[in-house]
Design a protein around this nucleic acid. Structure first.
Lengths: 333, 333
DNA sequence: GTGAAAGCGCTAACAT
DNA sequence: ATGTTAGCGCTTTCAC
């Protein structure tokens, strides 16, 4: 429903005139400015006038005047995000709203530079999965962004916690399989080069766990979402003596399952499989998929706390406890 | 990496001083204002100064002055969106960027009113899946939003096209099954009440197709993502003489598949199943899932055209052709 | 308790 | 060809 012909903005001047007061008073009333005692009569008149006129303060003017924005920008990666991430988005939005910040997500298209967005909006903070490149960081600072949080691969301290989580995911997969007696694991890497940032730390976690537990190095294969290729991978693993596979995520794990089916390999008898994410399809797969899941609520809460701390100058939240990652035990491993 | 202590904004005054010109000239150069012949020497000096200082114009000031925002706000629904939707987001972002608009997504949390967001940003247009309630629309207009596009259930003209698509999805499922000789269809409704807006028109499409083709009324059952309950639904359908099921989407279809497996019903022999979305897991299911998919690129392109038309006053794009929905034939039906 | 006035950073009509 | 100036809508001292 295209809405036509904006009839000229209602400004605080209009409200002031309608209420028979000055703009100052309007501002005081509408912002509930402390230490400014406005008599209830006047107050009510202003409120009524504003409501009658449908007054909405100009975000641009407010931002310009205050020199401060309450927008937190979330850079949506251009690679496919699971349902978990979109859920996190809503949680994060809620958590930030509780502190007076508004979360806005920017879907970065592959080619375009992030910097484009500073032209349209000046966020107070930016949340990104990957580190931004130095030029973008410079542009960001110039645009007045106060806080940036990178969720992955950051060499810093606080933001490193999610990086650790990624490794813990891999560790947990491997530890579960080792506990079930598997000595030689496979790792099913995703096809999509864009998710390297996630796949690598997870694989690192698997490697580390194998080393710690005295298992062989994991045998890595790339598994596209294609049954025939996955079947090849399954056969190759079997020939290499692999009895269990950690998959990058549930989608890849489902491909492994399909491959095993095609190759006539029983799961978990011939090959055990562990995924990551616990997507809805995981529980419904044949066999139901054992998978590692993360506490998205906790993560969202934590990111929010990180951002708010940076913005409000309050102390940063404690490192995320390691139990944000959890194993969901089903039939596949 | 929390970025500390913004050293005071670089403004166009700074650039002017650095380049030894006035702010006007800076503005002219940086905006490439037409019909303003600035000698190349001056131009270059300004550009250099801006680059040296890392100047970034203030989005707030620019918005305030122009009275016009180039932000298009996409209201992210609070219900789970499939990978298709997030992909659309990126496409839409790109398409709008080509016209100078910036797409920002707002993850609406369930309880909070949409109106909250106008406080932080004044978009030029809003794209929403569902119709907004009248109060929100009023607030939106007051906030200076020029164009609103509702993707679903709008009684209007242009925006109705996606609504039609939803019905076509259902039609296509039913038509495919009818063509395969099925006379009595089931419909697998989603568990989640939040997706009613999608489920209803799809079911309407199935009903319409059944009526047109002289089939029985479809037998509707709600199928949660739970194997046991899905198995019950499968048995109930079989008892009712249903030989094929249209599922709301692939996740529901996978549940039906799992249910059939648990109930010992062969797919497609005992029960044919058609999903919607073609999620990655669909091709990997056992059996591979026949599903209806939509041309997300086309849809994104179309929404962008709709928005740009409303914003720039250009003629609206033609109605989406019906071939945005397509059947992916696999083993399940 | 309320109003007048300045100023946030920018653009554009007007002057030079 | 470039500079001066006004004004976008708001908040916030500072007077009254």
């Amino acid at each position: 429903m295209p809405v036509e012909s904006r009839p000229r903005r209602v400004t605080s001047v209009d409200v002031a005139r309608e209420a028979g007061v000055s703009r100052t008073t309007v501002s005081y009333v509408l912002n509930a400015t402390p230490h400014q005692k406005i008599p209830d009569g006047t107050r009510q008149r202003v409120l009524d006038a504003a409501a009658r006129l449908g007054y909405a303060p100009s975000a641009a003017a407010r931002a310009l005047q205050s020199g401060r924005s309450d927008v937190v920008l979330y850079l949506l990666p251009d690679w496919p995000v699971g349902p978990a991430v979109t859920h996190t988005l809503v949680r994060l939005s809620t958590a930030l709203a509780a502190h007076g910040y508004t979360l806005l997500a920017y879907p970065r298209a592959a080619g375009r530079p992030v910097a484009d967005v500073w032209r349209s909006i000046e966020p107070a903070a930016v949340v990104s999965w990957e580190d931004l490149d130095p030029a973008d960081v410079a542009a960001m600072r110039a645009a007045g962004v106060l806080v940036a949080v990178a969720l992955l691969r950051g060499p810093g301290t606080a933001e490193g916690s999610l990086e650790v989580s990624q490794q813990r995911i891999g560790r947990m997969q491997a530890e579960h399989l080792a506990a079930a007696g598997h000595r030689r694991l496979g790792y099913a890497d995703p096809d999509d080069p864009r998710v390297r940032g996630f796949a690598e730390p997870r694989l690192d976690g698997v490697r580390a766990a194998c080393a710690d537990l005295g298992l062989d190095e994991p045998v890595v294969r790339t598994v596209p979402p294609d049954t025939a290729t996955a079947a090849d991978a399954v056969r190759a693993w079997r020939e290499a003596g692999v009895t269990a596979v950690c998959a990058y995520n549930d989608d890849v794990a489902l491909a492994v399952l399909a491959g095993a089916r095609a190759a006539g390999v029983d799961v978990p008898g011939g090959l055990a499989v562990v995924g990551v994410d616990d997507v809805p399809a995981a529980a419904l797969a044949a066999p139901p998929l054992t998978t590692v899941t993360t506490d998205q609520e906790g993560i969202a809460e934590h990111i929010a706390a990180l951002v708010v701390a940076g913005l409000d100058g309050t102390p940063p939240p404690p490192r995320l406890t390691s139990d944000v990652v959890r194993l969901v035990r089903r039939a596949s491993a």
